[in-house]
Design a protein around this nucleic acid. Structure first.
Length: 506
RNA sequence: GGGGGCGUAGCUCAGUCGGUAGAGCAGCGGCCUUUUAAGCCGUAGGUCGAAGGUUCGAGCCCUUCCGCCCCUACCA
C-alpha cells in the first residue's frame, strides 16, 4: 500500500512536525459554509472570511497559486499570494492538494471575475497522506467506488448529491406520515420467528439466552400488534435483511417503510401512496413530477393507473386459468419456468411475474391479488378468491405493496398452517401463535403499506443500481491470503517443497 | 445458480501479429502574480489481479483461481 506518493506525503508530514506544526490539530477556525459566502457575493467584496474544507488541485504560478476548496455546501477558489503570506510561503509545498485546511482571507474576484478568497492565514487542519483521484474523471472504477466510498464521496460530487437526495427523501417520508398523525415506532430486528414476507432470513444466535434468532425480513407482524394495542396509526422506517441474491435492485439489507392505519382499507392506502408521491415531488423535486430512470421518463403525478391483477394475467396469458393448476403448469412449461416442487399459487404468480411485471412501465397500481399468494391480506367480499391488495409498479420494478389487513384470527391461523404445510425455506416452520393471539384480542380493520425506500431513492435520483443509493453495499471481503495464492497451487507447492507457499502467504 | 464483460503506475486509460512496459493527470526538481483539466522544461514511478502452462520469448495464447460490473434466475 505504500507507493511513492504516500511516502512523499509522509516525508512532508514529518517535515511539518519538525517545524513544530501539528499536522492533525484538535481544532482550527471553522469558518463559514462556502455556499453562504457565494450567496450575494457581489456585495461581499473586501469582507474578511474564513472557510474550512478539502483543498483541490493547486495551480502554481511561483509567486501566486490558485486552488479550489470544497466543503459540504460547495466550493470556492482560494488565491495564495506570496506577498500576503510571508509565514505560509516557505512551507507552501507541504500543504498541498487534498489536505484539509482552514483559510482566512479577503473576498474578491480574479481578473476573470471568479469569486476568490485571497488567503491571509492558512492553517492545516488534517494532512492527507494519500492523493485525490484524478481531477477530471474522478474515481471511476466501480469496485473502488463501493469499497472506498469515503473517496468516492469527496471525489465525485454527484455521489454526494445522490445521497443528499436520499436523506431528503427519508426526511420527507417521515414528514408526510407525521403530518397524518402517524406515530413513528421501532420494532425488533432480532426475531425468534421470521414472517411478514416471503424471503430467506439470516440467522444468528443470542449467547446469554442460548437462543437462535432471525434478522427480520419485515416488521409487519410487530407493527400490526401495535394496531391491536390501539396505536391506530404507526410507521417504521428501518433495515430489513433478506438472504437472497444480489442485483442492481437487491441488496441483502435494505430500508423498508411500513405503515399501518386503523379504520382504513386498501383504497385509502392507495390514496396515501398517491399523496406521498405528490409530497415527494413537491419537496424533493421542487415541484417537478417527471423523473428519468434508466433512459426513460416517468410522470409521478397522481392519479396513477390502476389495473386488476387477474385482468393483466388474462391479457398476457390468453386461455390460461390462474386458479387451474394444469393450465398454469402448461403455461409455465411454455415459458421454461421451473415447476418442480413449487406450490400452485406461487407457480401461477411466477407466470404473472414472467409475463406481466417487466411490461409494467407505470406508475401503475396492480390490485386484487389472489389469496394463495397473499397470506396476510383480507379477502374481497365480492370474490373470496382474491384479496384487497395492491402493488405499485414502475419501470418493471415493484416499489410498494399494500393491503386491507387480515384481522380474522381463524382465517389467519389457517393460512399460516397452510404455509407450514407447504414448508419451503422462505416461510417459518411454525405458526406465529402469538400473532394469532393478538388478532384474537381484536384488531380494527386496517390498511397497511410497505415501500422499498432504496428503490424510491433510485427513482428520484435516477440511479440505475441500488448500490448507488446504498452508502456501503455488501461486497465480498477481499481475503489478503486468498488474493495472492491459488489454493491448489499453494497445496501443490506445499506438497513439493513449500517454497512457493511461503512466498504466497505474505 | 447460468451467460457475457472487465482487471496494466496513486487515478483515468492506450498497448497492433506473441518480440525491450506507454500516455495524460497526480508526484518530484525547475520557470512563471490572475489560473480554471493552467502552461513550459526536466525527472521518477510497474507483482500487467494471482498461480500454473504453451513458447526461444507472454500484458497479449491456454488452464485454474480471486475480485468487480452487466444480463438472467430468486426476491422488494
Amino acid at each position: 500500500m505504500t507507493d511513492g506518493i504516500h511516502k512523499d506525503r509522509l516525508d512532508k508530514l514529518e517535515a511539518l512536525r519538525a517545524d513544530g506544526q501539528d499536522p492533525f490539530p484538535p481544532r482550527v477556525p471553522r469558518g463559514t459554509p462556502v455556499a453562504e459566502l457565494l450567496d450575494g457575493f457581489d456585495d461581499r467584496h473586501g469582507e474578511v472570511a474564513t472557510v474550512a474544507g478539502r483543498l483541490g488541485v493547486v495551480r502554481d504560478f511561483g509567486k501566486l497559486r490558485f486552488a479550489h476548496l470544497t466543503d459540504r455546501s460547495g466550493s470556492l477558489q482560494i488565491g495564495f499570494q506570496r506577498d500576503r503570506l510571508p509565514d505560509f510561503w516557505p512551507t507552501r509545498k507541504r500543504i498541498e492538494s487534498n489536505d484539509l485546511v482552514s483559510i482566512k482571507g479577503e473576498l474578491g474576484v480574479t481578473k476573470k471575475g471568479e469569486p476568490t478568497l485571497w488567503a491571509s492565514e492558512v492553517t492545516l487542519a488534517g494532512k492527507a497522506l494519500r492523493p485525490a483521484p484524478e481531477k477530471w474523471h474522478g474515481l471511476v472504477d466501480t469496485e473502488q467506488r463501493y469499497r472506498m466510498r469515503y473517496v468516492d464521496l469527496f471525489a465525485n460530487p454527484e455521489v454526494r448529491r445522490d445521497f443528499m437526495t436520499r436523506s431528503r427523501i427519508v426526511r420527507e417520508v417521515r414528514a408526510y406520515f407525521d403530518s397524518l398523525d402517524y406515530l413513528e415506532v421501532e420494532t425488533p430486528m432480532l426475531q425468534p420467528l421470521f414472517g411478514g414476507a416471503a424471503a430467506r432470513p439470516f440467522t444468528t444466535h443470542h449467547n446469554a439466552l442460548d437462543m437462535p434468532l432471525f434478522l427480520r425480513i419485515a416488521p409487519e407482524l410487530y407493527l400490526k400488534r401495535l394496531i391491536v394495542g390501539g396505536m391506530e396509526r404507526v410507521y417504521e422506517i428501518g433495515r430489513v435483511f433478506r438472504n437472497e441474491g444480489i442485483s442492481t435492485r437487491h441488496n441483502p439489507e435494505f430500508t423498508m417503510l411500513e405503515s399501518y392505519e386503523a379504520w382504513a382499507d386498501y383504497r385509502d392506502i392507495m390514496a396515501r401512496v398517491e399523496g406521498l408521491f405528490a409530497h415527494l415531488c413537491k419537496t424533493v423535486l421542487d415541484g417537478r413530477t417527471k423523473v428519468t430512470f434508466r433512459d426513460q421518463e416517468y410522470d409521478l403525478a397522481p392519479p396513477f393507473q390502476k389495473q386488476a391483477y387477474l385482468d393483466l394475467f388474462a391479457e398476457h396469458n390468453p386461455g390460461v386459468d390462474w386458479f387451474d393448476v394444469d393450465s398454469v403448469t402448461r403455461r409455465a412449461k411454455e415459458l421454461n419456468l421451473p415447476i418442480d416442487g413449487i406450490e400452485a399459487g406461487k407457480l401461477a404468480n411466477d407466470v404473472f411475474e414472467a409475463t406481466v411485471e417487466d411490461q409494467l412501465t407505470g406508475p401503475v397500481f396492480v390490485y386484487d391479488y389472489p389469496v394463495a399468494i397473499s397470506p396476510l391480506a383480507k379477502r374481497k367480499p365480492e370474490d373470496p378468491r382474491v384479496t384487497e391488495r395492491f402493488e405499485l409498479f414502475l419501470a418493471g420494478m415493484e416499489l410498494g405493496n399494500a393491503f386491507s389487513e387480515l384481522n380474522d384470527p381463524i382465517d389467519q391461523e389457517q393460512r399460516f398452517l397452510a404455509q407450514v404445510d407447504d414448508k419451503d425455506d422462505e416461510t417459518p416452520g411454525e405458526v406465529d401463535i402469538d400473532y394469532v393471539t393478538a388478532l384474537e384480542y381484536g384488531m380494527p380493520p386496517a390498511g397497511g403499506l410497505g415501500i422499498g425506500i432504496d428503490r424510491l431513492c433510485m427513482l428520484f435520483s435516477g440511479s440505475a443500481s441500488i448500490r448507488d443509493v446504498v452508502l456501503f453495499p455488501l461486497l465480498r471481503r477481499i481475503d489478503p491470503a486468498a488474493a495472492s495464492a491459488d489454493p491448489d497451487a499453494a497445496a501443490d507447492a506445499t506438497n513439493d517443497n513449500g517454497g512457493a507457499a511461503n512466498e504466497s502467504s505474505q
